[in-house]
Simulated assay, not measured.
Amino acid sequence: MCSSPRPAPGVYVIVNRVLSPNDKRLAITFNGPDQPATATVRTDGPAQRWVIADYDTRTQSVSPTNAQNLQAAWGSGFVTVLPAGKYVWTIRKTDTGYTIQDGGVTAFWGVEEAINGAEVTIEVGTGNEKQRWFFESV
């Protein structure tokens, strides 16, 4: 993790704070365009690498490294990946990990259950650790 309020632009694996029932670390995984992103066991493979880029002084974009013409976007209650279109997120460091929220800071990325293959959801903040992430530079 970096010491600034938000991650520096770069390439990261984004890992959920909560371990799976088998004590495995779950990383956000790109599953293709217009598909839900999922939290899967961390492999350090290309589908788990994300480019974080500054959009402005408050928000950042999140793109898969193997498809940088796409960006993480808001699907029907989950994170999906669509053609780049100024989809931006407010990513901030807290005492328990980073939060990833919409530009209006009203909803959080998280997982309902910390299990392999869980969809990465976008929901109202619960304060729950399943809505906290670590950004591991790669």
Rank of each mutant, 00 (worst) to 15 (best):
T96H: 07
T80Q: 10
Q71K: 14
T43R: 06
W109N: 02
V88T: 14
K86R: 14
G77C: 13
G10T: 04
I100Y: 09
W89D: 08
P46H: 07
P9W: 06
A27V: 01
S20Y: 00
R58N: 14
T99G: 03
R42T: 12
Q71P: 11
K93A: 08
T65A: 13
D56Q: 09
Y55T: 10
P46M: 12
T29G: 01
V81H: 05
S61G: 13
T94H: 09
I52L: 14
T29H: 00
G45Q: 11
I100T: 01
R25H: 06
G75A: 11
V79H: 06
Y55K: 08
N22Y: 11
I91Q: 01
V11S: 08
Q71F: 14
T90S: 12
V15Y: 03
K24T: 07
T96M: 08
A27K: 01
N16Y: 06
K93E: 09
G75C: 12
A47N: 07
N22D: 10
Y87H: 13
G85W: 11
G103N: 10
N22C: 06
A27S: 03
I91T: 02
D34G: 02
P33I: 09
V81I: 14
L26P: 00
I91K: 05
T43S: 04
V18T: 05
P46D: 15
D95M: 08
G10V: 09
G110Y: 04
V13Y: 01
A8S: 07
